[in-house]
């Protein structure tokens, strides 16, 4: 008779310790994000009130009844001086500027970096540093000569004039140069023996390898292009070329016939202007982090 009773060990569940440090960290984080969230939130709630309320009582924290109306007016009501431009057109212009700007920058800087890294040019290093020093000369510094050049070329009020002067990018060239230099040299040699010329190597090997890098730079540059204000203001006088960022101001400034400015519409438009950059960053943040931190080799 072997009756063994299995003694169950007394379960001593350790009391979970309260980690004050963790709580502290999270409090700071939550407060911080609330603080950062407040302005867009305020913009959204305020955009749901009519212009009179806003003008009289200032920013609103509660939701009003005019949200749909304001968005509708912001997007589809023809406005501006000539009454020909609406929100959708400005949205499209912003997309053209953002995408054209980002794509142009990537193409130009990739090709520049490719030339600097892979070809035995006599003054490659010098060329690189010349490009690099242009970081010290942002658009604001060279705005007068740039404007004059574009104006003389007759490119004012064109997408070309809007995009092309902005796409030379020292930052992009620098990023791609660093990336290309980290690609093993043997890859280029193997491709050479495999009969791939410089162009094929670029398209077949380097561009696919740079995918995550391209994505990361695209995001940065798209947001940057989307938020351009000064250059579009200078170069476009025709309202059909206005971007969202300009349009917002246009609404606020429309003090015609002693009317109350359409603050609600302006804020609605501001919300609309915020969405694409945010969406791009949210959707592509994986690629973004990957592109900047690891190289897919």
């Amino acid at each position: 008779m072997a009756d063994t009773t299995l003694e169950t060990p007394a379960v001593t569940r350790p009391r979970r310790k309260i980690k004050w440090a963790t709580i502290g960290d999270h409090t700071v984080l939550i407060l911080g994000s609330l603080l950062m969230m407040l302005p867009p939130l305020l913009a959204l709630t305020t955009a749901s009130h009519d212009a009179v309320t806003i003008h009289r009582e200032g920013l609103q924290l509660t939701l009003g009844d005019d949200l749909g109306k304001n968005f509708n007016a912001a997007m589809f009501e023809k406005g501006g001086f000539t009454q020909t431009v609406d929100g959708t057109l400005m949205l499209m212009n912003s997309f053209i500027l953002g995408i054209g700007f980002a794509v142009g920058k990537i193409v130009i800087s990739m090709m520049a970096a490719y030339a600097i890294v892979y070809f035995r040019l006599r003054f490659a290093t010098l060329a690189f540093w010349v490009i690099f020093t242009t970081l010290l000369l942002p658009l604001e510094v060279r705005i007068l000569p740039s404007y004059e050049a574009i104006q003389k070329l007759g490119l004012t009020n064109t997408y070309t004039g809007l995009i092309v002067p902005l796409i030379a990018s020292a930052t992009g060239t620098f990023f791609f140069r660093q990336f290309f230099m980290s690609v093993p040299e043997e890859l280029a040699e193997a491709a050479r023996i495999d009969g791939a010329g410089p162009w094929k190597f670029f398209i077949d090997i380097l561009v696919p390898l740079s995918r995550t890098m391209i994505a990361a730079i695209f995001i940065i540059m798209f947001v940057f292009g989307w938020n351009q204000y000064l250059w579009p203001t200078l170069i476009t006088t025709d309202e059909s070329f206005f971007t969202l960022v300009r349009g917002i101001k246009q609404i606020v400034l429309s003090y015609t016939d002693s009317q109350i400015p359409e603050h609600g519409q302006a804020l609605a438009l501001a919300i609309v202007a915020m969405i694409p950059p945010v969406a791009i960053v949210v959707f592509f943040q994986n690629w973004f982090v990957k592109g900047l931190t690891e190289s897919d080799k």
Binding site: P184, E186, L187, E189, A190, A191, R192, I193, D194, G195, A196, D204, I205, P208, L209, R211, D296, K297
Partner: peptide, 20 residues
């Protein structure tokens, strides 16, 4: 003559495979 036209094939130390 360009490496591609020498009718040779080379195996590298780090293999130099195209990662993508």
């Amino acid at each position: 003559v360009d490496p591609a036209d020498r009718d040779i094939a080379m195996v590298f130390q780090n293999y130099a495979l195209y990662p993508h």
